[in-house]
Computed example of a mutant assay.
Amino acid sequence: MLKRSTLLLLLAMFTHLLSYSQDTYLFVGSYNGAKDKDGIYIYRMNMQTGQLTKVCTYSAILNPSYLILSRDGQYIYACSETRTPGMGSVSSYTFDRQQQKITLLSKQDSGGENPVYLTTDKSGAWLVNGNYTGGSIAVFPLKADGTIAPAVKVIPFTDHSIDTGRQKTAHIHSTVFSPDDRYVFSPDLGADKIRRYRFEAAQSQPLQPDSSVRAVPGSGPRHFTFHPNGKYAYCIEEMAGAVSAYRYADGQLDSIQRLMTHGKEPYGFYNSADIHIAPDGRFLYASNRGDENNIAIYRIGDDGRLTFVAYQSTLGEHPRNFLIDPSGKFLLVANQISGDVVVFRRNIQTGRLTYTGVKVKMTGPSSLQIKTYHN
């Protein structure tokens, strides 16, 4: 029988070998402003220190401002030609880890101006896109080689709400699948609604409008996320600077709480942006742009209700997007206007964030995705 010391040594050796059998990469989309500038960035991330090392970049595409990855990490899908009057596209790329190279595979019209959000179903057969300025949702088939086929359905909206400056028409800001893939929920900043659609992957027209939940007038619902247990959902409201919490079951959202994400009144207007929950489901994080430029941290109770914990400066300007890595160890922020990605370490017990000293500069970072590959 092996001695305890020998077992510990073998365990340490196994852990050491395991660390060399996988690589974690950070993918960054941006508002590059011109096709001759880098738009997509890929960094290798050290999961012990948070250090980021640039691997490769891709230009020749305008404003690839929001990215997602295929489930195997082989393909990158992007909202592109955003904030470009009369334009808008969705595009796909392959990432070759051996050659450390990004290659464009396909591009399709987004079905509306200014696409801002993408998501795929669990089967990887469908891509759903939200167009902000165009006020529409588009559905695209995905081919096995990573290319995007033309849209099979575009659903336009003309609704409006009470703010005559920002809510003259619909502004779709995100498209999020329910945990069971039976529904897609889509916050509409312009109409103050969270729209719901039925989804059936086996159908040629998989997405069908169903119903909607009314948000507070003038609140501007933006991004939406489900709790890991599938029982609760949360929506960040850009214009009101608030988070609304819902109890969720079988496609139904029932309001249970609404609270401010800002610690003070803004000089201009509220500008809340992104929202995510830690992998263990214990803490929720929300980003605030504008005057504060911070992450609001909340503890999530067993009943789904939120309790404020702290604010953390993002050490930059305009935190449009952020992510929590799947291990829950790190939170990374994309500060769009100051042009940097900042890495924080998470305290898993308290939810609080500590700056790691890692900050990388680039033009207009606006979207982050992370993937660990096993070699």
Results as ranks from 00 to 15, higher is better:
Tyr232Gly: 07
Gln369Ser: 13
Ser327Gly: 12
Phe199Gly: 02
Arg289Tyr: 05
Thr15Gln: 12
Asp38Cys: 05
Asp280Trp: 11
Ala125Arg: 12
Thr354Gln: 15
Pro141Tyr: 04
Asp325Cys: 11
Asn293Lys: 12
Glu113Phe: 14
Val128Glu: 02
Leu52Ile: 01
Tyr232Ser: 10
Ile337Gly: 02
Val333Leu: 03
Asn46Val: 06
Arg214Pro: 01
Ser255Leu: 15
Leu67Cys: 03
Tyr285Val: 13
Thr82Cys: 05
Asp340Phe: 09
Asp163Cys: 09
Tyr267Val: 15
Glu317Pro: 00
Ile194Pro: 01
Val184Lys: 00
Gly190Gln: 10
Thr314Gln: 02
Gly357Thr: 14
Tyr20Ser: 14
Gln99Thr: 12
Gln336Asn: 01
Ala191Tyr: 06
Lys168Trp: 05
Ser174Pro: 02
Glu237Thr: 10
Arg44Phe: 10
Ser92Asn: 03
Asn32Thr: 12
His276Ala: 12
Met239Ala: 07
Asp302Val: 14
Glu81Trp: 11
Val342Arg: 03
Ile236Asp: 00
Val116Glu: 02
Glu113Trp: 12
Arg222Ser: 07
Ser70Cys: 07
Asp145Glu: 07
Arg4Gly: 01
Ile324Ser: 03
Lys35His: 13
Tyr373Asp: 03
Ala242Ser: 15
Tyr311Asn: 15
Arg71Leu: 11
Lys101Thr: 12
Asp72Lys: 05
Ile148Phe: 08
Gly290Arg: 09
Arg214Gly: 10
Tyr248Asp: 05
Met1Tyr: 11
Ser19Gly: 05
Leu52Asp: 00
Leu284Met: 11
Tyr267Thr: 13
Thr82Glu: 10
Leu331Lys: 01
Leu332Met: 07
Gly281Cys: 06
Ile300Gln: 00
Ile236Phe: 01
Asn294Met: 09
Ala296Arg: 07
Thr372Cys: 06
His160Ser: 14
Thr24Met: 12
Ala34Asn: 06
Ala191Ile: 12
Gln99Arg: 15
Arg352Cys: 13
Arg83Met: 15
Asp192Leu: 04
Phe330Arg: 02
Leu142Phe: 08
Thr57Arg: 01
Ala78Glu: 04
Val139His: 02
Ala249Leu: 12
Thr175Pro: 00
Val243Ile: 15
Asp250Gln: 09
Gly112Val: 12
His173Trp: 05
Tyr25Asp: 08
Ala240His: 10
Glu265Met: 15
Phe283Glu: 02
Ser92Pro: 02
Leu69Ala: 08
Tyr197Asn: 09
Lys264Ala: 10
Gly124His: 08
Asp280Gly: 08
Ser219Gly: 09
Thr363Val: 15
Val360Thr: 03
Gly112Asp: 04
Ile68Met: 11
His223Thr: 14
Gly220Val: 13
Thr307Glu: 14
Gly112Cys: 07
His227Ser: 09
Tyr58Asn: 01
Leu104Asn: 01
Ile68Tyr: 04
Gln336Arg: 06
Val184Trp: 00
Lys101Ile: 13
Asn347Ser: 13
Arg166Glu: 06
Asp302Leu: 15
Lys143Tyr: 13
